[in-house]
Amino acid sequence: MAPSVLKLEISRLGRLMDRLPIEDERRNMLVAVRYRLGLLRDVVLGDFETADLESCDEHLRSAILSLGFRPDAADRVAVAGTTAATGAGLENNLDNIADRLGYVRERLRRLR
């Protein structure tokens, strides 16, 4: 279950990143989240039996925290106007990603 969710979220984050202008503070946040999920994906796709579940949890915690502490709307740079992709739609998307990652984390914690 986890690899599929992670792959899905990584590609979703990639698409969201592409929609944001380079100076939008949220872009680096998405980069960090995607990077952590990439590391986690490598772990769960590898030899999961011997995987360090503590490090899996750390990647997920970091990703969820980054999504939680994201720049406020006032700090965002409005380049090319705000659209569904960069405005409230994006915020909802990020909340949903965080929810799904929280679910994955909860499942992984049961394995520890």
Partner: peptide
């Protein structure tokens, strides 16, 4: 503590 895992942008956001 959070600086060990959060990007600077999120730290500033907080």
């Amino acid at each position: 503590a959070l600086g060990t895992i959060l990007p600077k942008s999120s730290m500033m956001a907080m």
